[in-house]
C-alpha cells in the first residue's frame, strides 16, 4: 500500500504549504487562490479515505461556492492591490508564538496517542447511498433544522446587506 503513503505525503505537503501561503501572502486574491488549492488537497485526502461524497461536497461547497463569494467580495471592495496595513512586528511575533504554543501543547497531548492503523479494507460508508440512509433516518431532525438555519442565514444576509435608502438619524440626532 505504498501508493497510499506517497499520496498522503504529497497531499499533506500541498495542503500545509498552501495554508502557509494563505496567511503569508500580501494580496488577498492570492490568499483566496491558495485557500482553494488547500481545499482541493483536503478533498484529495477525502478521496484517499474513500469518503467520496464529502470530497465532492467539499469541492462544490467550499472551493466552488464559498471561495467565489470571498473572491466576489474582495473584488467588489477593490482590495486586490496590496494596500492592507500590516500589524506591527511585535504583534505578528506574538501571534506566531501563541499559535506555536498551542501547537506544542496539543502535540504533547497527542504524542502518546496509540496509533490506530487506517482500516485498509475497503468500506463503503463514505459512499452516497450509505450516508443518505443514515442522514435521512438517524439525523433527519438536524437535517431539517439546518434548512431552517439556512433560511434564517439567507434572510439575515439580505437584511444586513441591504442598502439603506434614507439615512436614519440615531437617537441623539448624531449622523455618523
Amino acid at each position: 500500500m505504498a501508493i497510499y503513503d506517497i499520496l498522503f505525503w504529497v497531499l499533506s505537503a500541498i495542503a500545509v504549504g498552501c495554508a502557509l501561503g494563505v496567511i503569508l501572502s500580501r494580496n488577498p486574491v492570492n490568499s483566496v487562490m491558495f485557500l482553494i488549492i488547500t481545499f482541493f488537497a483536503i478533498s484529495g485526502h477525502y478521496v484517499l479515505m474513500n469518503a467520496q461524497f464529502l470530497a465532492i461536497v467539499n469541492v462544490i461547497v467550499y472551493a466552488g461556492a464559498i471561495m467565489v463569494l470571498f473572491l466576489f467580495v474582495i473584488m467588489l471592495m477593490n482590495l486586490n492591490a496590496d494596500v492592507e496595513p500590516q500589524k506591527g512586528q511585535l504583534v505578528q511575533l506574538a501571534g506566531v508564538i501563541s499559535g506555536g504554543v498551542f501547537f506544542l501543547v496539543i502535540l504533547a497531548a497527542i504524542k502518546s496517542a496509540k496509533p490506530e492503523l487506517m482500516d485498509k479494507t475497503s468500506t463503503n460508508i463514505g459512499l452516497i447511498s450509505d450516508l443518505g440512509k443514515v442522514l435521512f433516518t438517524k439525523y433527519v431532525l438536524p437535517f431539517e433544522i439546518s434548512s431552517v438555519l439556512f433560511l434564517s442565514a439567507m434572510i439575515g444576509a439580505v437584511v444586513i446587506g441591504k442598502k439603506e435608502e434614507t439615512k436614519p438619524l440615531t437617537h441623539n440626532g448624531e449622523e455618523e
Binding site: 494563505v22 504583534v91 506566531v96 501563541s98 498551542f102
Partner: peptide
C-alpha cells in the same frame, strides 16, 4: 495552528 496564527497575525 496555521489557521490560528493567521487569525492573530492579519
Amino acid at each position: 495552528s496555521i489557521g490560528i496564527m493567521g487569525a492573530l497575525m492579519r
